[in-house]
Design a binder for these strands. Sequence first.
DNA 1: GTCTATAATTAGATAGAC
DNA 2: GTCTATCTAATTATAGAC
Lengths: 205, 205
Amino acid sequence: MARKSGSSGEKTRAMVEEAAIRLIARHGFAAVSMRQIAREVGVQAGALYLYTPDKQSLLRDIMRGHLEHLLQSWQDHAPDAEMPAIARLERFVRFHIDYHILRAEKVFISYMELRNLEQENFAEIERLRRSYEHLVEEILTAGAAEGVFHHADTRLTTLAMIAMLTGVSTWYRDDGRLPPQAIATRYVDMAFRLAGAEQLVEAAE
Amino acid sequence: MARKSGSSGEKTRAMVEEAAIRLIARHGFAAVSMRQIAREVGVQAGALYLYTPDKQSLLRDIMRGHLEHLLQSWQDHAPDAEMPAIARLERFVRFHIDYHILRAEKVFISYMELRNLEQENFAEIERLRRSYEHLVEEILTAGAAEGVFHHADTRLTTLAMIAMLTGVSTWYRDDGRLPPQAIATRYVDMAFRLAGAEQLVEAAE
DNA sequence: GTCTATAATTAGATAGAC
DNA sequence: GTCTATCTAATTATAGAC
C-alpha cells in the first residue's frame, strides 16, 4: 500500500514541523537526521521532501516562522507609544517571559542554531532578531528621556536584559518551583532594577 | 614517509584541541567532522585517534578541561569569605567577564554543546557547571544576610545574573566598541542593580 | 607518530511504483 | 501522498605499513 488510508498532506506537514522542532531542540540541528524526523512522524524519509526542498530550508522556515510570529504577537498587543516607558517595559517583560515559556523549543532553536544557517538565511534571521532587540532598546531610551530610567549604557543594558530574560528558556520546566506568572513578576522586578527605574529604588529602601 | 620530520606528539595534541575548539565553536560539535579537525591540524584523520579514543571524548575533555580550569582560576584569586559580599560580587563579575571574553570559544562550547554529551558525560559536566553557579548564589545569600543586598528571590536572581553575565560571550568582538575592562565595569554596575545593592540605590538617585 | 587504505555505517536526496 | 529502493557522498573508526 503506497498511501496510507486517512493520510493527509496538511496534517503531515504540521507533524513534520513539530517533530523537527522537538528533535532539533533536544539534539541540535546537525545531530538530527532526516530519517529520525521521518521516523518520529511515521513516514519514510523520502516523503519529507514533499514538504521541504532540503534540510537547511526546514531549519530556516522554523526560525523564520518563529521570529515572524514573535514580532507579530508583540505588535498585536503592544502598548501604544504614548504609554509611560515603565508600563511598556513591564508589558514587554511579561510578554517575553510568557512567550518564551510557552514556546521554549522554538526559542531555543532560534538562538542555538544560528550557526547552522547558510549565509543568506543567517542574514535574514539575524535581521529579524535584531528588530526584536530594538524593541527593548527603544523602551529603555524612551524611559531615559522621560527621566524614569537611569541606565549608564543603553546598548549594553539592552544586551544584558535580553540575555537575562531569554535565559528563562534554558531552565524552565513545567513542574518547576514557580508558575509562569510568578516567574514573570520576578523578572519584571529585575528588569526594572537593570533599567534603573525609580520605582524600584524606592521599593528597595 | 610515514612520519613527518619534526613531528611531536605533545605539540600535535595541543593543536588537535585548539582546532577542535575553534571549529566546534564556529559550527557546532555535530556539524564538525574528524576529518575537518585533522585537516586544520595538518594530519590525516586516523592520526587523531592517538589523542582521543573517540569524538565524544574529545568534546567531554574540552568541556571538563574548561570548567575545571574556570573553577580553579576562581579559587586562585577568589576573595576570602570574610570580605564584604559587595566586594566579593564585584570581584566575581570582573573575573567572570574577563574570563568569558578571553576564552569565549570554550565558554560558548560548554554551554551550547551540553546536548551532545552522552548521559554519563553530561552528568559530570553539569555537576561542574552547577558548582560554578553556586558561587554566585552563595555571594548573593551572604549579601542579603549582611543587609547590603535586597533581592526578592535568590535562586532566580542567580539564574538571571549568570545568564546576563554569560551573554557577553555571544556578542563580544575584539574590535568592538568597548575594551574588556570597560565592559566589566558596566557589568559590575548591572550586577549590583540586580542584587539590589544599597550603593547602587544611592547612585541612582 | 603519522600515513594510507579501508571497513562499516549513515547521511541527504532522488526516481519511480502504487 | 507515501513507500521502496537506491545513488552518491560523507562519516567514525580501525589495521597495518613505515
